[in-house]
Each structure stands twice: as C-alpha cells, then as structure tokens.
Amino acid sequence: MLRQVSAKIWSGDLAVEARHLVKDFAEKRAVDGVSLEVPTGTIFGLLGPNGAGKTTTLRMLLGIIEPSEGERCVLGHTRPIEAAHQIGYLPEERGLYPSMHAREAIAFLGALRGMRLSDARRRADELLNENGLSDWARKPIRTLSKGMAQTVQVLGTLIHEPQLIVLDEPFSGLDPMNQGKLERIIRDRAENGTTIIFSTHVIAHAERLCERIAIIAAGKVAFEGRVDEARARLRPIVRLRTRASEGAWRSSFPETARCDRGEWVFELPESGPEPLLKALIDGNAGIETLAIERPGLHEAFVAIAGDATARAMDEPPPEVAP
C-alpha cells in the first residue's frame, strides 16, 4: 500500500526528491526502493541498461503512474500532477502528426501545455531561429529524418519554458550531429537555471552532461551522487615508460602492475605520486613518459554495477515509432 506523503519531505534546494519508490506489476517488481535527490538547476542522469527501471521511475516521479510504495516531491508538490504545467516531458515513445509542419507541431505541443496558440506559434518561431532551424518551419513532419523529427519534439517539450525538463532516452536513434544539437540545448537550458533529468543507457552522454547521476540496475539504485564521486571510487591509473627495464625502483610498483608493450600500467599507490617519483629518480629509471589518469565514468560504472550490467548497456533500446 502507498504510504502517505508528508509535506516535510520537500527541500527548497531540490527540484525532485524521492524516497524508497517501489513499483510492482503483477508478479514483477520493476522498481525496488529507488531514492533520488535532484538539486534545482542541475543536469541529472538516470544511467542503466534497458529494462533497469528508468522509465518506470520517471513516470512515478511525474505522477503518470502511482508508486506501490514510497514518497516523491516534484517542484514543491507531493502530488506531481499538480506541477504538470511547470514540467516538460519527452517520453520514450515519440509521436507527432506526420502531416503537421514543424512549426505547427511545436506550437501544438505548447497549446497542449496551456499556451495560447498565437503565443505558441510565436515561441515556436523563436525556438527554431535560436537553434538555426528556421528552414524547417514549413516542412511536414513526414519529410523529416528521425533525428530532425525528434529535435522538433524536444523543442515542443520546452516551448512553455518549464522549470523541470524530463527526457526519456532522448539520444536514442540520433546521429552524432543531432546528438550534438540536443546536448547544446540541454546545456543552454541548464545554464538558465532549468533542472533537467534524462535517462540514458549511453555512459558517454552522462559523463559529458551530468553533474549528478543515479546508476540503476535491476530496479535498484547502485549509486547516486556526483559524477566525480563515482569516478573517485577508483584509484588513478599510472602510465609509465622508462629507459631502464630493471632496477630497485621496480619495488615502488604495486604487485598488480603490468607491462604492456614497454609501458607500465598500474593503480597509483595510496602513498601518492611523490614516493613513486623519488624511487624512479633515485633509481635512475630514466623517465620517458609519465601520466596519471583519473578513471572515466565507464570504469566507475563497471566497478559499481558489475561487468554484466555494463555489457547490457551496449544493447540498443527497442525501436519506437517516430
């Protein structure tokens, strides 16, 4: 049974807050105790493979479906549907009328969100012009590529200047050029104070865009926090080439160090780089190249969620109708 929500859950610094969300469908538990905190004005990514529970979580946050258990608060409302006019939502299942022109499709989505049609048409023109797409205005949706049509729907999602934008797998099926356009739109909105949540199974998008992420696997949150916190779970990696192949300096390497085509690769010891450098110099190792690299989000994801979940991230999502 759904627990009663207390207004005290809400924090003014958070656009979205959820505690212990659970969703059961018949015999299947799709979401199992998800808790999230999305600070106002940030870009937040739900990261996980297809079927992890990302879409169900977003729909519960928006009030499209009710949780079986748990609490959530969106833009100060413990009943998220009351904040619908302040939210722009792009569902995973896209849908535009094929015969509509791009400008009219954007304006129509604005009218559905309470705008006067004349205002929506004016704003549609502005959005197309701002994004260098004014030549699309009179093109019917059926003549646009999948990526172009998706960009039109994204513009329709933000036409009413929402405080919160929620995008479900927005990069799915986009070519690199249109991915870049969408990333610029997301960054521009965030710079203007809009809170953005998007789900993705592509780690690179989350690493480039997000300040905070939640890694979801099998309906549970494996990690929630800043991207740099996720990466900090792994020690930096040392890559080293030396003129000498042997010497007392080798004792400064961890046992797991490996040599790959003349390059030593190992985790930076907990003592830090100074003792390592001293051993190399004092031992006349002859440093040719030395780099200390922070692990990327992909490596952190593997460490947090496991190899099987990381491999599942490479599987494309099912095709949905344009």
Rank of each mutant, 00 (worst) to 15 (best):
R72N: 10
R72H: 05
R72I: 01
C73N: 11
C73Y: 00
L75R: 01
G76V: 04
G76Q: 06
H77G: 01
H77P: 13
T78Q: 14
R79M: 10
E82L: 15
A83Y: 07
A84K: 14
H85W: 12
H85C: 14
H85D: 15
Q86Y: 06
I87V: 12
G88P: 11
G88D: 07
Y89M: 13
L90K: 01
P91F: 08
P91R: 11
E93Y: 12
E93I: 13
E93S: 14
G95F: 00
G95R: 09
L96H: 07
Y97V: 08
P98S: 11
S99G: 13
M100G: 12
M100Q: 10
H101M: 15
E104I: 03
A105D: 09
A105R: 00
I106S: 05
I106N: 04
I106K: 05
A107E: 03
A107H: 02
L109Q: 14
G110S: 13
G110H: 07
A111Y: 13
L112M: 15
R113V: 00
G114V: 04
G114S: 07
M115S: 09
M115W: 00
M115D: 07
R116V: 15
R116I: 11
S118C: 13
S118I: 14
D119M: 12
A120F: 00
A120S: 11
R121S: 10
R122T: 10
R122C: 03
R123D: 01
A124R: 05
E126Y: 05
L128N: 08
L128G: 06
N129C: 12
N129V: 01
E130C: 03
E130M: 09
E130K: 01
N131Q: 15
L133F: 01
L133T: 04
L133Y: 00
S134P: 05
D135W: 06
W136S: 02
W136H: 06
W136D: 01
A137W: 03
R138H: 14
P140C: 14
P140G: 05
P140A: 08
I141R: 07
I141K: 04
I141C: 10
T143Y: 11
L144Q: 11
L144I: 06
S145G: 13
K146T: 12
K146Q: 08
K146P: 04
G147W: 11
G147L: 12
M148E: 14
M148D: 05
M148K: 04
A149S: 15
A149L: 01
Q150W: 03
Q150Y: 01
Q150E: 08
T151D: 09
V152I: 12
V152P: 00
V152S: 09
Q153M: 05
V154F: 11
V154E: 07
V154I: 12
G156A: 10
T157L: 03
T157R: 05
T157V: 09
L158K: 11
L158M: 12
I159A: 02
I159V: 06
I159F: 08
H160G: 08
H160I: 07
H160S: 05
P162S: 02
P162Y: 07
P162E: 07
Q163P: 10
L164V: 06
I165P: 03
V166Q: 08
V166W: 09
L167D: 09
D168K: 11
D168W: 00
E169P: 02
P170Q: 05
F171A: 12
F171H: 10
L174E: 10
L174C: 13
D175P: 02
D175T: 08
P176C: 05
P176S: 07
M177K: 15
M177Y: 15
M177S: 15
N178Q: 05
G180E: 13
G180H: 14
G180M: 10
